[in-house]
Nucleic acid binder design. Sequence first.
RNA 1: CGGGAUGUGGCUCAGCUUGGUAGAGCGCUGCGUUCGGGACGCAGAGGCCGCUGGUUCAAAUCCAGUCAUCCCGACCA
Length: 595
Amino acid sequence: MTQIMRMSALYAPTLKEVPNDADIVSHQLLLRAGMMRKSATGLYSFLPLGWRVIKKIENIVRQEMDAIDAQEIMMPELQPSELWHESGRWDDYGPELMRMEDRHGHGLCLGPTHEELITDLVRNELKSYKQLPLTLYQIQSKFRDEIRPRFGLMRSREFIMKDAYSFHASQESLQQTYDDMSDAYARICERLGLDFRPVQADSGQIGGSVTCEYHALADAGEAELASCTCGWAANSEVAACLPHPTEYAETELKKIETPGVHTIAELAAFLNCPESSTVKAMVGKDAEGNPIALFVPGDHELNELKAERTIDGFALMSDEELEAAGLPKGSIGCVGLPQGVRIVADSSLQGIAHWVVGANEDGFHYVGAEQGRDFTVDVWADLCTVREGDTCPECGKPVSMCRGIEVGQVFQLGTKYSQNMGATYLDENGKEQPFIMGCYGVGVSRCMAAIVEQHSDEYGIAWPASVAPAHVCVLPLVVGDDVVQPVAERVARELAELGVEVVLDDRKERPGVKFAEADLMGWPLQIVVGKRGVANQELELKVRSTGEKSTISFDEYAEALAFAKRASKPIASFLEQAANVRMEAAVTTVRSQMK
RNA sequence: CGGGAUGUGGCUCAGCUUGGUAGAGCGCUGCGUUCGGGACGCAGAGGCCGCUGGUUCAAAUCCAGUCAUCCCGACCA
């Protein structure tokens, strides 16, 4: 039997009004429903209900990790600086790493992640290829001194994360675990009730690595995603989608006077053509300071991340540098550039023979600038930030844009840490080899916010049953009498005996308050016990996610109870039986969330 | 770190321009009336007006500094 939570004793202070400093739905509702409170910027305390949700999420993650033979451990949050010096990240990580000293002046940091610690943990014991592969994980608080913590749990300075690390003797073995992890992540998202997408992501500075982010789709998400009906999806930072520029109908190179025209919008309006018929120029420099002109279709933006990937040490030039190089901002083009300026252009422009570009002279543009005749592109590359309608690299259909919350990422690390930190094993030939590693993270507290973003309405949260702080809320509309309350107490007890998590609103509150707060807190199923119902020998059910209401008679309820007692999964089976009796569609929703 | 804004009972906010004994609603306590979708009446408790300094007979209000919070940007697991 599970414990009945009595609302009369529950510490869950609700707020009628929207807190001033919360501006996304999940943040507002988690505060309003009494699930958490802010302790300082980017630091939150979880109250009993919120903490129950966190534990539910953790357990789902734990089960899926255990199911793929990852083993749970627990490492310290406080870490010695030596290990970070060894990996090189004490200097590389930047101010986001929370550093401190102990009384002896010994350097420490609060762990933002645990690659160093885990590598150190295994390097002395894990010595033979026979012991590989090995996957370890933990669920604990992480610390990152974010420049700008915001959006409640979405980007906080202390947050709960599951981090897993795998060790391998071969790339094939790493790939196997990586695939297992990917599958587990998909199952985790499904069980959390998240509408999610695995998306291609930036592999960061670690070249050649394989990585995939798991995003919960939500407008409040910080990441912009491009996705296609064929299933392909990518973070806009990396999405390699081709724009489709259009050709301006002029094949002769003509210099035209364009007084006052400096922006693409002005140019397109001046020529009465779409922006996609113009070519936008940006000028940067490489690591040696050599100038490079980059060209993209006029209706697209240069993606600086992509430019950096194409050109070693790339940085855009400042206005002063442009002036010094004799380049008129707003009128730069590929014809008649100063000596030594290399031309890099977006691959999509390869098919456009004649360009509309600046004439490198204020107030003038060229039309009909022909590739090969009037200028030559040195390098073709993927340079654009993806836009709605660009071409999917997988199937060629137009992609659409949406926003996502990154709730997880899987990553093939390779040997970066094992090499830096001398973590090696002996292979079949007795030869020392660095471990091939993978790492895999799930933002547990961030998942909580993502779930609320996806499962809420004007009345409050509608938790998926898998993570709800309790499955059922029993609402006696009268307390202290000998008619309604005894029935509510009995129902709560019987459900609790079945293993159903029950909260009983035994407060002396008016019905309106109880209804409003039950909706706000988001219990998946409400069972209302009122004078009217008891008189008719029936209970009222309301499924929070659909809002559907129905009644079931005491007899039908008893039948559902008996059915559930015989079945192995009491919660689901109670609901299933209740569904058979009455509210099929509605309860099916709750039930499907329970698996 | 740049730009913008805000700090007044637990919460949401008014008052500040034009200095003169601190306000409302919600929440909280008590009593009464209510009681199927965040009730009503009466009576209460609760505030160094973020902090420090200045101007002034007098500062929530004007000035300076400082701290904190939020938003945008830069930055970034």
